[in-house]
Simulated assay, not measured.
Amino acid sequence: MYPIHKLPPGSPDSPVLTHSRQAADETLSLSKGDVFRAQVVRKLSSHEILIETGRGMLSAQSNHSFNRGDSMLLKVEELQPQILLSLVQSSEEAFHPAKSNLAMFRSSPDSLFNVIRNGLALCDGDLQSLLPLLEKAEADSLQRMLSSLVYSEKSLNDPLFIKQFIINLGFLVEKSLRRFSSGYTEKEDDLRNSSAKTLKDLLSRLSVRMRPLLSGATGSELNPGLLKALENLVTYADDALEAIYNHQVINVIGQEEEQGYYFQIPVKSSEHLTMADLFVDLKGQKSKNLPDRFRFVVFVTMDALGDLMVDVNCRQKKVWGTFKCSHVDSDRFLQKSLEILNDRMTSAGYSQANFTVCRCSRLAEEKLDFINNRVIYSKKIINCFA
């Protein structure tokens, strides 16, 4: 249990969390000097909270007022004889909203993937028991929307899956609103209909409708099971909306640093979901508002093929790329598919199509090297908090 002490005025380096144990919990992997973002997950009582550190959950006692969703940046000052953490608040710049989003992303890098995975689990469980409070059309719309965000065998015949993925999440809602407010000749009904068909909008509506029911549930006739399902739905909706917004900010930062876009694509593998990391770079001089060159990099782990990296470049009517795999059998399978792939790309109108396959025994390390060079993972950016 961590007691948390309120900082006295003017003493930003004072400790705010201490741990009664004599050594760091191994599951937390703490080292002296570490700086990390922690967030209040739940307020257990007036003096006790549950926080997520990105390295594990901690219950904490506090004489300072914290609320659910509060975020704090912490630094490990000592590990012996107690774990001693201090609140980092060196300047207002340290808490610039964009930097806060970066820190939150680093503390929960799979958050967008979890939105879809946890949402599908909710649809199969708690959402069914809430049908007395929900319109069936709402529940069906949410389940269809979440399912549309999963790359599956059906997606193989959809060349616009990634575009629809971005739209369905709600990443473009603000863009549509901005175009409408600036006088763009888009019908108001069309704007309303397009925003209503996004996960972001569906979750916003559910949160607004369900929250009053939850706040008025004290002493109500709702049975405990229904009340718990309602709490789970509202918590999921709030967390999912925050994760979607956070990834919108992450992509804005990537664009500003000319490093393109990053998406987490759920892929159906056998009976479970796995996450594909997709990085999209737009390079070169722009003509007619289009980039001169595209680069797509995907990292994914498949049941049968193991770890894979796909690096594809496209320039005008030329496309080329490399498939990297860690298993010998995967190498053989991909080699057999190359001729078919090259022929199909040529048939699609590309004057040149050249793909190769190579085996890499250090694919996990190569992935780490790649993502650590991205601004969203940059140590330079994160260290500016310290």
Rank of each mutant, 00 (worst) to 15 (best):
H5L: 14
P15L: 12
V16H: 04
L17V: 08
T18V: 09
A24I: 13
A24C: 05
A24H: 01
T27C: 06
L28E: 02
G33Y: 10
G33P: 08
D34R: 00
R37Q: 12
I51T: 09
E52V: 02
A60P: 00
S62F: 02
S65F: 08
M72H: 06
V76Q: 02
V76F: 04
V76Y: 07
L87R: 07
S90E: 11
S90G: 13
S91F: 01
A94L: 12
F95N: 12
H96D: 14
P97L: 01
P109W: 01
D110N: 09
L112C: 02
V115M: 02
L122I: 03
C123V: 12
D126G: 06
Q128M: 06
L133V: 09
L134E: 12
E138S: 07
D140A: 05
S141F: 02
L146P: 02
L146I: 02
G170Q: 06
F171G: 03
L172Q: 08
R179D: 12
S181K: 12
R192P: 00
K200T: 01
D201E: 08
S204Q: 13
V208C: 01
M210L: 14
P212E: 06
L241G: 10
E242P: 00
V249I: 12
N251E: 00
I253S: 01
Y261Q: 08
Y262D: 03
Q264H: 08
L273H: 06
L282M: 10
L282Q: 09
K283M: 05
P291E: 05
D292G: 15
V297G: 04
N313A: 09
K317M: 08
T322S: 11
S326Y: 06
D329G: 07
Q335Y: 07
D343A: 14
M345R: 06
T346F: 13
T346Q: 15
A348C: 11
G349R: 11
G349V: 10
S351D: 11
F355V: 10
V357D: 11
C360V: 15
L363V: 10
L368R: 13
